[in-house]
């Protein structure tokens, strides 16, 4: 059973700020979704013949240096950045 406190906590973890009213709506939605997710708890797992977790092999490329994206281009989406860095406002 998901509680209002649980939703508040995951809001903090998710960096989302919900008003008290929005929290009520979200709690109702999450109660329904979590009850739906809970249906898997009734399923017993028969381990026999289960495939491994990872059925797909990583396909690594050769360890060779290839050109990277130009920093000045990347920073265009961040208002140009400052001195070649991403910039954030004052934090202290």
């Amino acid at each position: 059973m998901i509680t209002r406190e649980d939703v508040k906590r995951v809001c903090e973890l998710s960096k989302l700020t919900l008003s008290e009213e929005e929290l009520d709506g979200m709690l109702a939605d999450m109660e329904a979704i979590v009850a739906f997710a809970d249906t898997i708890n009734a399923v017993e797992i028969d381990e026999e013949g289960l495939p491994p977790f990872q059925t797909i092999q990583n396909a690594f490329r050769p360890d060779e240096v290839i050109p990277s994206l130009p920093p000045q281009e990347i920073l265009k989406n961040a208002d140009g950045g400052e001195n070649g860095y991403f910039a954030v406002g004052k934090t202290f």
Partner: peptide, 30 residues
């Protein structure tokens, strides 16, 4: 401050369904 900027950006930027799925995802991983 920085934390407030990130929270406000995400709260204003994501729609309700996306917020719902992020919250559910963080719930099942917590």
């Amino acid at each position: 401050d920085l934390d407030d900027m990130v929270c406000k950006t995400r709260t204003q930027g994501f729609g309700k369904e996306v917020q719902r799925r992020i919250l559910l995802g963080n719930y099942v991983l917590s």
